[in-house]
Design a protein around this nucleic acid. Structure first.
Length: 920
DNA sequence: TATGGAACGTA
DNA sequence: CGTACGTTCCATAG
C-alpha cells in the first residue's frame, strides 16, 4: 500500500467520475434535509463537495479533474441498446444537482470534462493513462468497479464502500485480496459475472468465486472460453450457453484509454478557487458550514500565500518622522491620486455583547499614503510635526485621494482632523457597482477585484533589522505595521483604479461623487449628533413592559395546567399546542408548524384557548421590553443614542440603521408611541432647550409609481391633492369619492401599496381576508382604471430581464440574475424584487438628495439646528431656539424640491418636545 | 462559541 | 404566494 502522505512525487492527479460520485452522494444523504429556501435540493452537491474535500486532504493532489457523462448516446448504448436499461427513473431531486456541481467545480477552478459519445469512465481511464505515462501518481475516485482495471503501482482507486465518507483506497493487493484476480484481469472476471447495475447479465449461476477460479486455472478469459468444454456441471453448461454475454460484457467493460480530450494534463493543476464566484454560489446553495472548510482545505493545500504576481509587491515606503518627509512625499506624488488608509483601533466593545461602547468611534492611530510606486506611513498616536503635516494633507481639498469607508475615518478622527479631497471611497464604489454583495470588507474587495491578498506574509526589507538586539524586535514590529498600512493604501488605490472606470461606464459617477460620497460625510454628522433620550422615562417603560411580560407569562402557564414552558421557544410551543393541546396544525415552517401571530390568531378563533391570548400578550410585552432594553444599553454618556447608518447594506439604495436600529421603533400601537416619547429634544451646550422637527414624504412610493408609469389617472389624483386612496377607491368601485366607505378605502390602500411589491391576488386575498376571486376582481378593476400602472410594472420586469438589472431615477442599478432562472420560485422572487427596486430605490435617491440639500442650507444659513435621523421617508431635525421657522422652511423646501416629478412631492411636518409629539 | 431559523418591529 | 431591513431569542453544531 502506498503511503498517501509520502509526497515524494511532484505530481499527483486526482480524477473523479463525477456522475458516479454524485449519485453515491445523493443516495447517501437524505434529500429532504438538504434543500434551499427555494426548494432546490442540494444533498448530492453537498455530499460531492465534502467527498472532494476529504480526497484533497487525504491524497494531497497537485492536479484534479472531474469527468461527467452526457445525455447523448455512447459507444456502449450504440452497441447494446439495453445498456443500463431497467434502471429506475432518475429521482426528481437529483435533477439539476449535476449542473450545480459543475458550477461549484468552475468556481473551484477544477476542470470538468465531458465527451460526446463517451461516458465518464472512459474519460477517467484516458486521464489516468496520460498521468501514468507522464510518470505521475494517480488517484481515481469512482463507484464503478470497472476502474479497477486501471490500477498499477502508481495508480490507485478510491472506491466508496458506503456513502461518501467511507472511501477506502484500493491497490492491486486489495483487489487481489477481494476478488482473487489481478486488477488487469478484473474486467475478465466482471465479464463472466456480469454487472446488474449496467443491465449486463453474465453467466447465470456463476459468481466471482468460480469466475476467479476459472481464470486462474486457464490463465485468462480467452483460456476459459477456449476450454469451456472442459468445465463440467451446471456452471460449465451455463458458461457454454452464455458465451455471447461474456464476449459482449468484455467489449463493453473495457475502458477506452486513448480518447482525444479537450484538456491537457497541465490544465488540471489545482489552483486557488474563484472566491467571489464561490461565495455567490454558496450563498445561493445556503452552504455556510462547508464554506469555511472549502477555503481552509484549499489554503492548506496550496498555502495561504500564493506567489505574489509581478505587479503585486507593496511599494517601497518611508516611515515619516518629520514634517519634511511628509511634504517631500506629497511634493513628489501629490499630483496623482493617492490611496489613503487610516489605521483605526477600537471602538471598545461592551463586554460579552459585541456592540461598541456607545459614543466610542475608535481612534485613528496612523495613516498611510500610497502612490503607484511609493508609500508613506505616519504614526498619529503622538502630536508630532509629521502627524500634523499628515493631518493637513488629509484636510487639503487639492490633494486627490481614494479612501476606504470615509464615514468611519471621519468618526474616528472626531474633531482631531478633517477630510477633504476625497475623489473615491472604495467601500461606496463597490456598493454602487454591486449593491447586493455579502461583504464589502477591504480584504474581500482586494481578493474579489484584484485577485490579490490584502494581508500577505510579506515582511518589509530585512535590511531594516538592526543588530541592536533590544530595539530589533520593536523596530521590526513598527516596520511591519507601516508596511501593512501602506499595502492597504496601495490596494485602495488599485481598487479605485478598477472601480472608477466601471462607475463611469455605468453612468453612475454623479451618483457616487455628488450623492453617496457627500452623503457619507453628512451621515457622520447625524451619527455624531445622535438623539437625546429621556432615560428616566425609559427606565419606567422597561419596568412596565417587564411587569406586563411577567403577568402574561404567569397567565399563560396557568392556562397550560401550570406547566412552565418557555414561551420564547417555538419548539416547546409546538409541543404544547399541537401535541399536548392537540390543536389544528398551522402553516408549515422548516422546523415544524408556525406559531407566528397570524397562526396564533387563527388558532384562537378556532379553539378560544386562553393560553393563546396570554402567549400573544407575552410576545407583545417581551418584544417591547427587548426594544426598550436595547435602547437603554445604547445610551451614551451624553445621554443620547448615536445609531450607525449603513450606507452599503440595502440592495435597493436605502440606508439601514444599526447599534441600535432606530428605523424600526414601534409606532402603530400605544406602547410604541410611549417608546417614541422617550426620544426627545435635547439641551444645547448653552443650556437652551431644543425642539424636534419631523418631516416625512407622504406616499412617496405611490408618487414615484405615478411618475414612472405616467398614468394619467394617478397623476390627476396627486395633482388634485385630494385623498389618494379615496380617489382610487372611487375609480375602482365606480362610486363618487364621498361614497367611498372606509372598508373600500382600506382595501384599495392595501392593494396600491401591494402593487409596488409584486403582490399577487392570492396575497391580497390573504391580507384582506377576502376570496381570491374577489381579490382578482379588485385588481382587475384597478388596472382597468389605471392601465398605465399595469403596463409599467410589466415593462419594468421585461426590461430587467433583458438588461439583467433594474435602475432607479438616478441610475442606481440592481442586478437580478435570477430573472432568467429555471427555478420558478427564484424567478418569481426576482421579478418581485425587480418591480420594487426602482420604486423603493428612487425614493431612497430622493431623500438622499434632500438630505444633502438640507445639510447644505443649514450650513450656509449658519444655523445651529441639525439633522439627527433618517427613517427611509422621514427626516428628523433638532431645532435650536429661534430657528424653528427657518429650519422648517429649509426642510420642507429641500425635501419637496429634491427632484422634479410629474406629481408634486408632499411633505408633512410636525414639531414637538419628543419624536412622538412632533409626529402629531 | 458561532450560526441559522423564527418571530416581529419599521418604511 | 408582498419589497427592503436589524435584533432578539432559541436550538443546533462544534
Amino acid at each position: 500500500m502506498t503511503d498517501p502522505s509520502n509526497d515524494t512525487t511532484p505530481h499527483r492527479l486526482l480524477v473523479i467520475d463525477g456522475h458516479s460520485m454524485a449519485f453515491r452522494a445523493f443516495y447517501a444523504l437524505p434529500a429532504e434535509n438538504f434543500a434551499t429556501a427555494t426548494g432546490q435540493h442540494t444533498n448530492a452537491v453537498y455530499g460531492f463537495l465534502t467527498m472532494l474535500l476529504t480526497m484533497i486532504r487525504q491524497q494531497q493532489p497537485t492536479h484534479v479533474a472531474v469527468a461527467f457523462d452526457l445525455d447523448t448516446p455512447t459507444r456502449r448504448s450504440e452497441e447494446y441498446a439495453e445498456y443500463k436499461a431497467g434502471r429506475s427513473e432518475t429521482p426528481q431531486e437529483f435533477y439539476g444537482q449535476i449542473d450545480l456541481i459543475v458550477k461549484v467545480m468552475e468556481a473551484l477552478r477544477i476542470p470538468t470534462i465531458t465527451l460526446d459519445g463517451f461516458e465518464a469512465d472512459d474519460i477517467v481511464a484516458t486521464l489516468a493513462t496520460l498521468s501514468e505515462d507522464a510518470g505521475w501518481e494517480t488517484r481515481v475516485v469512482s463507484g464503478d468497479r470497472d476502474v479497477f482495471q486501471l490500477i498499477t503501482d502508481r495508480t490507485l482507486v478510491l472506491y466508496p464502500k458506503k456513502g461518501v465518507s467511507d472511501i477506502p483506497l484500493m491497490d492491486a493487493a486489495a483487489v487481489e485480496e477481494k476478488y482473487k484476480v489481478s486488477p488487469a484481469q478484473y474486467p475478465e472476471l466482471a465479464a463472466l459475472v456480469g454487472e446488474t447495475a449496467d443491465n449486463l447479465p453474465g453467466i447465470p449461476g456463476v459468481g466471482p468465486g468460480f469466475a476467479a477460479k476459472w481464470l486462474k486455472e486457464y490463465g485468462d478469459l480467452d483460456g476459459v472460453l477456449a476450454n469451456a468444454d472442459k468445465i463440467t456441471g451446471k456452471k460449465g453448461e451455463s458458461l457454454r450457453e452464455h458465451m455471447d454475454n461474456v464476449h459482449r460484457n468484455r467489449r463493453l467493460n473495457a475502458l477506452v484509454r486513448d480518447l482525444e480530450l479537450p484538456v491537457t494534463l497541465e490544465a488540471t493543476t489545482l489552483e486557488q478557487p474563484d472566491r467571489e464566484q464561490l461565495e455567490e454560489l454558496f450563498d445561493a446553495l445556503e452552504f455556510n458550514r462547508v464554506r469555511q472548510r472549502v477555503f481552509d482545505t484549499f489554503d492548506e493545500r496550496l498555502g495561504t500565500t500564493t506567489e505574489p504576481a509581478q505587479d503585486d509587491v507593496t511599494p517601497d515606503f518611508t516611515v515619516a518622522d518629520s514634517a519634511q518627509q511628509v511634504n517631500d512625499f506629497l511634493a513628489e506624488h501629490g499630483g496623482e491620486l493617492l490611496g489613503v488608509y487610516a489605521e483605526i483601533t477600537g471602538p471598545e466593545m461592551v463586554a460579552k455583547r459585541k456592540i461598541p461602547v456607545p459614543g466610542d468611534y475608535g481612534t485613528v492611530t496612523g495613516v498611510s499614503f500610497a502612490a503607484d510606486d511609493a508609500g508613506l506611513f505616519v504614526d498619529l498616536t503622538s502630536d508630532s510635526a509629521a502627524a500634523k503635516a499628515a493631518r493637513d494633507a488629509l484636510a487639503d481639498p487639492a490633494l486627490d485621494t481614494a479612501v476606504y469607508d470615509v464615514k468611519s475615518i471621519i468618526k474616528a478622527f472626531g474633531s482631531t482632523a478633517s477630510i477633504d479631497g476625497v475623489q473615491d471611497d472604495a467601500l461606496i464604489s463597490a456598493y454602487i457597482l454591486q449593491p447586493d454583495r455579502r461583504s464589502y470588507e477591504l480584504s474581500a474587495l482586494v481578493e474579489g477585484y484584484l485577485n490579490a491578498n490584502l494581508d500577505t506574509g510579506e515582511t518589509p526589507a530585512a535590511g531594516q533589522q538592526a543588530l541592536d538586539l533590544d530595539g530589533a524586535e520593536e523596530e521590526s514590529k513598527a516596520q511591519q505595521r507601516a508596511h501593512d498600512a501602506v499595502r492597504a493604501a496601495w490596494m485602495i488605490r488599485r481598487l479605485s483604479q478598477v472601480f472608477t472606470p466601471a462607475v463611469i461606464e455605468r453612468g453612475a459617477q454623479q451618483l457616487l461623487q455628488n450623492l453617496e460620497i457627500p452623503l457619507a460625510v453628512v451621515l457622520a454628522e447625524l451619527e455624531f449628533a445622535g438623539v437625546a433620550i429621556d432615560e428616566a422615562r425609559l427606565g419606567e417603560l422597561l419596568q412596565q413592559f417587564s411587569d406586563e411580560a411577567d403577568a402574561a407569562q404567569e397567565s399563560a402557564w396557568a392556562a397550560n395546567d401550570g406547566e412552565k414552558v418557555n414561551l420564547g421557544s417555538p419548539k416547546q410551543l409546538q409541543v404544547v399546542l399541537f401535541e399536548k393541546m392537540d390543536m389544528p396544525k398551522t402553516r408549515k415552517t422548516k422546523t415544524g408548524y408556525s406559531t407566528d401571530v397570524d397562526s396564533l390568531n387563527d388558532l384562537l378563533e378556532r379553539t378560544g384557548h386562553a393560553f393563546l391570548q396570554n402567549l400573544m400578550l407575552y410576545r407583545d410585552a417581551t418584544k417591547l421590553k427587548q426594544t426598550v432594553q436595547g435602547l437603554k444599553d445604547a445610551v451614551a454618556e451624553d445621554h443620547r443614542i448615536h445609531t450607525t447608518f449603513s450606507q452599503t447594506t440595502a440592495a435597493t439604495g436605502r440606508l439601514s440603521s444599526l447599534n441600535p436600529n432606530l428605523q424600526n421603533i414601534p409606532v402603530r400601537t400605544e406602547a410604541g408611541r410611549q417608546i417614541r416619547d422617550v426620544f426627545t429634544a435635547g439641551t444645547l451646550p448653552t443650556g437652551e432647550q431644543t425642539q424636534l422637527l419631523t418631516a416625512d414624504y407622504s406616499q412617496i412610493e405611490m408618487r414615484i409609481m405615478a411618475h414612472l408609469s405616467e398614468d394619467e389617472g394617478l397623476i390627476t389624483a396627486f395633482k388634485d391633492g385630494e385623498d389618494l386612496h379615496r380617489f382610487v377607491g372611487a375609480n375602482v368601485f365606480d362610486v363618487d369619492p364621498q361614497d367611498v366607505t372606509s372598508e373600500m378605502r382600506s382595501k384599495v390602500k392595501a392593494m396600491s401599496y401591494g402593487l409596488a411589491y409584486g403582490l399577487s391576488s392570492f396575497g391580497l386575498s390573504k391580507q384582506l381576508r377576502i376570496s381570491v376571486d374577489e381579490a382578482r376582481e379588485l385588481m382587475s378593476a384597478y388596472f382597468d382604471r389605471f392601465g398605465a400602472v399595469q403596463t409599467y410594472l410589466r415593462d419594468v420586469v421585461k426590461q430587467a430581464r433583458k438588461d439583467g438589472f433594474t435602475e432607479t431615477m438616478l441610475g442606481r442599478r440592481r442586478y437580478l440574475p435570477d430573472l432568467t432562472s429555471d427555478n420558478r420560485q427564484l424567478r418569481d422572487m426576482a421579478e418581485r424584487a425587480a418591480l420594487n427596486a426602482p420604486i423603493q430605490g428612487s425614493a431612497a435617491d430622493i431623500i438622499k438628495l434632500a438630505m444633502l440639500g438640507v445639510q447644505r442650507e443649514l450650513t450656509e444659513q449658519q444655523l445651529r439646528s441639525r439633522m439627527i435621523l433618517q427613517i427611509h421617508d422621514e427626516l428628523i431635525l433638532e431645532l435650536a431656539p429661534g430657528e424653528e421657522e427657518q429650519a422648517e422652511r429649509i426642510l420642507t423646501e429641500q425635501m419637496s424640491s429634491a427632484i422634479e416629478l410629474r406629481v408634486p412631492l408632499d411633505v408633512q411636518v410636525g414639531r414637538g418636545r419628543s419624536w412622538n409629539d412632533a409626529a402629531h
